[in-house]
Nucleic acid binder design. Structure first.
Lengths: 248, 248
DNA sequence: CTGCGCCCTCACGCGACGTGAGGGTCAAGC
DNA sequence: GCTTGACCCTCACGTCGCGTGAGGGCGCAG
């Protein structure tokens, strides 16, 4: 396909299964600017525009706000192939969640009386993607607890807690580098250490909640960046270890 | 589990993975009213409330607006098991879509240069669920065309078109009752007849667009009702026939 | 009684578009 | 050139579904 093919807004809307208004909006906010304009100010999109739109849709489907999507895509460090790889991983998780949800519905249809309240919602994901633990959980008991505890800690203790957390990350990286799988006893022990760390210093954290928290690491690219700076693939590794620990 | 267990709003939020604010909102709009109130006006939810919330989440995840969800759930004809069955079918479709999207990403990551613009978005679903063909497509060329054509038809002709459409539905039902699978030549021929019917009398309709239109039948319970009135399972059957026809 | 976790109502505000008004552009046909 | 139909533009009000914070009450343990 030739690189100089251009599509008008209606064609793009149809191809990408979005509305024309959406494309107008994305242009307005600078998220997706058409690379060309025809006479009469018609928007004309090129191949690269479509590929950017694909990335936008992927992130948006994950629940990221548009402004954040823009920040991510405009980041000089943005690696398109890496992003696709991470999206792929997340899609596989969503597929697994769908499987679980199907099983939940099957049990409902069979009139399974043993289902607990939690069973009713097995397979449903957390409502909106948690963007920043602090920012997003601002009104949650967990955050309030952690803030209140934090206020009681001296600077020295806070520093020690931070150091302990960083040590945990390095231990995870070492464990990964040593070739232990995320579901190995070693990795799971580290995941449990991580959970207890949070539980002790910040707020009560069940294994289940730990899984949900850990999933931040692959949902929000900037959040994940913290982990990937320590070691490549660490975020994914930690999530898997935490998940394995919760399943044990 | 005992039927008299009650949950406070925070517990429900955690179990169902929604926010407390969401539950407040649903109470306000009459979508999900807690069955009890404690002293101090604390909301207390029972088991039936949780099951209704499950249904709400299922429909909401499909993209139905809340007001419509309420209309559906409050409909005297609402059949919970039937709804679960339809949800299950839709979830399987979503899983298949996810598979296709994963394949799309795989091709991207391999640097497949033969991908067309349409290939880039294979597996992405239509943005928002089409609610009513007329209502939802109000600003689309297809609807405008159909409205303009309609204005040119006499009452008699409109009646004849309507009769032709109803005959089509009956033919579909007969075909299904005769045991022909939705991908049989018979069913596919009917799907093509349906497409041409719309194409001739209302607006141009490609096979692909026909698939998307047909998916309305399983997404919107009230829309689907029209088909199910003719024969049980007809909506699903027609969607499958249309899909098979488009794939041929 | 105090402190902490959780709950209430009230209400402003936001993100992501939906919708319609009013008008222009493009291409085919007469 | 004119007409028609499909498609495009900008502008802007409005909607939906909550997010967020203010200000205050409730339940329980110490």
């Amino acid at each position: 396909m030739k690189d100089d093919v251009r599509w008008k807004v209606g064609e793009v809307a149809r191809i990408a299964r979005v509305t024309i208004r959406t494309l107008h909006h994305y242009d307005e906010i600078g998220l997706l600017r058409p690379s060309h304009r025809a006479k009469g100010e018609y928007r004309l999109y090129g191949r690269a525009d479509l590929e950017r739109l694909q990335q936008i849709r992927l992130y948006r489907d994950l629940g990221l706000p548009l402004e954040e999507i823009r920040a991510v895509l405009d980041d000089p460090d943005f690696d398109r192939v890496d992003a696709l790889r991470r999206h792929r991983a997340r899609l596989e998780e969503k597929r697994d969640e769908t499987d679980r949800l199907i099983k939940t519905l099957d049990r409902m249809m069979q009139g399974d009386e043993t289902m607990t309240a939690e069973d009713l919602f097995d397979g449903f994901d957390q409502e909106a993607m948690e963007r920043e633990a602090g920012e997003r959980w601002g009104d949650s008991p967990a955050w309030k607890t952690s803030q209140q505890r934090k206020q009681r800690y001296s600077k020295e203790l806070t520093g020690a807690i931070q150091a302990e957390h960083e040590q945990l990350l390095r231990d995870f990286a070492d464990c990964m580098a040593a070739g232990h799988g995320p579901d190995s006893a070693e990795a799971r022990a580290l995941a449990e250490r991580a959970r207890l760390h949070i539980d002790r210093w910040w707020y009560p954290l069940s294994k289940e909640a730990h899984v949900q928290l850990a999933q931040l690491y692959v949902c929000d690219p900037r959040f994940e960046k913290t982990y990937e700076t320590v070691a490549e693939g660490l975020a994914r590794y930690v999530v898997d270890a935490v998940t394995a620990n919760a399943a044990a």
